Simulated assay, not measured.
Amino acid sequence: MSTTSTLKLETLTIEDNSALTDLWFAAFSDPILRRVFPNTPGVRKWLENANAHDLLNKSFQRYIKVVDTESQDAEGRPRIAAYAKWDLSMPEERGRRYPPWHEEMPGELCEAFFMKEEANRKRVMGDTRHFYLDTVATHPDYQRRGAGSLLVKWGCDLADAQGVQAYVDASKDGAPLYAKFGFVDHSLPGEDIASMARR
């Protein structure tokens, strides 16, 4: 099993934004999610613009990345193995998670998908202040090498330092990673997404 010796945690910058889109689509190939986010040039640009907006305008959202210090991307920079988006705001400050849906996206399905996630988070967390792990994306080349753990630990350590709870919407496959850090699944029976809270 590979170690994390070549993997390093860093703050993500706007210069990394186009690489994030490539990584996101490589990491999330689940058929259900791909229906919501079809891999088209228009949707890719929409996602890139959404991340750019949040990077530049939402200081309460922290983007962090794990780079491979022994591998370079096409521009000669350390390759991004994984990234995470942690939302540190109060629940009432967050506002809408995404901009209006792209015309190539199934708008009604998108609304239903994310409204269900929001409803489950509200059911589990109520109005309690908590850090929200919005996204963890690991490139398939780096899965099970510790990149995801570095990203989750970063937010959990910050939550512990501030005495704050944390929450993540996890795939069933991804749930064991979060359980290692103290997240507990509060999903209702039959749910596809694990509603996981760390008290």
Rank of each mutant, 00 (worst) to 15 (best):
K180A: 00
R123L: 04
V168I: 06
R96I: 11
W46P: 01
A179G: 04
K172P: 05
D157G: 14
P100R: 01
A166Q: 00
I193M: 05
L158Y: 03
R129F: 00
E111H: 10
Q162W: 11
F113T: 14
V67Y: 04
P78T: 12
M196S: 02
E70Y: 02
K8H: 10
T40Q: 01
A27Y: 01
I14P: 09
N51E: 11
P99D: 02
D87T: 12
L47I: 03
S59M: 08
I32T: 15
A159Q: 06
R35V: 11
S2Y: 07
R34E: 05
S149C: 09
D160R: 12
F37S: 01
Y167H: 03
K172S: 13
F113P: 07
F181I: 05
H139C: 08
E108F: 10
V67L: 05
F28W: 13
A175K: 09
E104I: 06
F25G: 09
R96C: 11
L188T: 12
R129G: 04
N120W: 00
T11Y: 15
D185V: 08
P41K: 03
E70A: 08
G155N: 13
R79W: 13
A170C: 00
W24M: 13
D134T: 08
A159S: 02
G146H: 04
C156P: 11
R144E: 10
K172N: 15
K65I: 04
G42N: 03
R121V: 06
V152K: 10
S187C: 10
K122H: 09
K153I: 03
I80R: 01
K180E: 02
S171L: 04
G190L: 12
L12G: 13
D127E: 14
R79T: 15
P38A: 07
L20D: 04
E103V: 01
R77E: 14
A112N: 14
T6L: 00
T128P: 07
L55Y: 04
P106V: 05
S149P: 09
A194L: 00
G155H: 12
Y178M: 00
Y63I: 09
Q162D: 14
E103T: 06
V67D: 07
P91T: 06
I193P: 07
Q162E: 15
A74E: 14
D192E: 15
P176I: 02
L33C: 09
P38W: 06
L20I: 10
H102V: 05
K8F: 07
I193E: 04
S149H: 13
